[in-house]
């Protein structure tokens, strides 16, 4: 769609994920390990990947297709990760896809019974891209444990849609599909949370961002790349190189 097809670097990243079909709307599915990503993926695509209650069950990145509201979607089930700060292969893979694979919408699935740790990843994804939908999965387990979540407040805090679901029973999935549809049609007003760091970090980010302006074009999220650079993240260079050398 539009912008995403123009850059051959991006299509290269997509090729890495075996996405050749550019007519479909590409979605990314990210989340902590064992939050029900595969369950939701199965539900959406009708595929039957086995799921189980242990972290790391999905080891292959799987992709599937579905149609909703006359739109054709391709959804990539990324490996479960705690963070995008890329110290492991899985994290690098997920980060590259969310950042450089330009999915139309990134769905971050979170475990409602363990929201604090899950929000860490959600906030990190929000630093990369605006088009994020947060799924609160395992709402039944949360209820059973006496955990109540104020969805409205969470939405206000994160600035993107938050959809409570029970993936294994398919509850809330329709709402999610509608939210995806609305986001693709740009019907939703987004005001995504952008974390402010302390003064020193912010100043360093600004400095580096300015320098990046001379090197990278507007397709890149420079604030985020700057942030990665001051975090001495060398793997990001490899990814940028892959893209630059194919432009």
């Amino acid at each position: 769609m539009g912008l995403t097809n123009q850059s051959s670097g991006i299509s290269l990243i997509r090729k890495k994920f075996n996405i050749e079909d550019n007519n479909k709307i590409v979605l990314a599915l990210a989340g902590n390990p064992n939050t029900g990503k595969s369950t939701l993926f199965n539900h959406l695509t009708g595929l039957n990947q086995h799921t189980g209650n242990w972290p790391g069950k999905t080891v292959d990145n799987a992709q599937g297709f579905f149609t909703h509201n006359d739109k054709e979607y391709l959804i990539v089930d990324l490996p479960g990760i705690y963070s995008l700060l890329a110290k492991s292969k899985d994290e690098e893979l997920a980060r590259d896809f969310i950042c450089f694979g330009s999915p139309e919408v990134t769905i971050v699935i979170t475990d409602a019974t363990c929201l604090e740790r899950n929000l860490n990843l959600a906030i990190q994804v929000l630093e990369i891209t605006n088009k994020v939908i947060i799924c609160l999965n395992l709402m039944d387990e949360a209820e059973r444990k006496g955990i109540k979540i104020d969805i409205k407040k969470l939405e206000k805090n994160l600035g993107v849609p938050v959809i409570p679901i029970i993936a294994r029973e398919g509850i809330g999935v329709n709402k999610l599909l509608n939210a995806i549809n609305d986001m693709v049609e740009e019907k939703i007003k987004l005001n995504p949370l952008r974390l402010k760091y302390d003064e020193f970090i912010e100043k360093t980010i600004k400095n580096i961002e300015k320098k990046l302006d001379n090197i990278l074009d507007e397709n890149f999220n420079k604030r985020w790349i700057a942030l990665r650079l001051i975090d001495s993240d060398k793997s990001i260079l490899k990814s940028i190189n892959t893209i630059l050398s194919n432009e």
Binding site: L115, E116, L119, N120, G146, D150, L195
Partner: peptide, 16 residues
Amino acid sequence: SIYERAEKIYKEVVTN
């Protein structure tokens, strides 16, 4: 910083 924000949001929206 990221975790502190996560913690703040968590405390604001979750009652347990």
